[in-house]
Design a protein around this nucleic acid. Structure first.
Lengths: 93, 93
DNA sequence: TTGACAGGCAAGTGGCGACTTGCCTATAAA
DNA sequence: TTTATAGGCAAGTCGCCACTTGCCTGTCAA
């Protein structure tokens, strides 16, 4: 949840693509995310790899999860990004 | 200058500290930055290490340089950070 | 011109991170 | 109760990245 976790989470291209996917369709399960990454982005990572990516994103606070039976839904939370702009402000158009 | 370069540049804690330093005092030389990192932040990286960090920051467009004789001044440019907020918007207070 | 100062280039090393592999748990359907 | 489905855990491999080391270039003062 600190700066190190946040920037570490953002440093990987697959994780950034996952954020894009969740932004486009929020609340997906692990298997849905895997499928979309393969279909729409041509990525062929294993389920475990994606699971580990999601854990990193969750630790950074960028993804929040919700359990429901045997499903686990993943939700995007962009609010941690605010800290970046707070730290190094830029002119807002 | 693309997303990969930007997030790669931000992924290292020493590079983020350099951005902090330049924000506080813009237009420093390599040796000045080295000195401040040691004095104020307790970091003991070699000159070459800092030089390589600055090259990464420059490639990401976060640092711009200006040559003057045997001195090279480094300037902070936070505008590339705008692309992060554009990609994953969050509510602006 | 000689020395000090500011910086650059390139090869080598070590550790961390992304990914795989194999097996395990839990929920729900047949 | 079986079988399939959704996900988790942990050890091991491999490549990249931060950092060092050594030497070189260019600028300016003595």
């Amino acid at each position: 949840m600190d700066a190190a976790d946040l920037f570490k989470a953002l440093s990987d291209p697959t994780r950034r693509t996952i954020l894009d996917e969740l932004q486009q369709s929020d609340g997906q399960t692990l298997f849905e995310i895997c499928g979309r990454l393969i279909m729409k982005h041509g990525l062929s990572s294993s389920r475990q790899a994606i699971s580990q990516h999601l854990a990193v994103l969750e630790e950074a606070g960028l993804v929040r999860t919700r359990r429901e039976g045997r499903y686990k839904f993943h939700h995007l939370d962009t609010s941690p990004l605010r800290s970046i702009v707070d730290r190094w402000p830029f002119d807002k158009e």
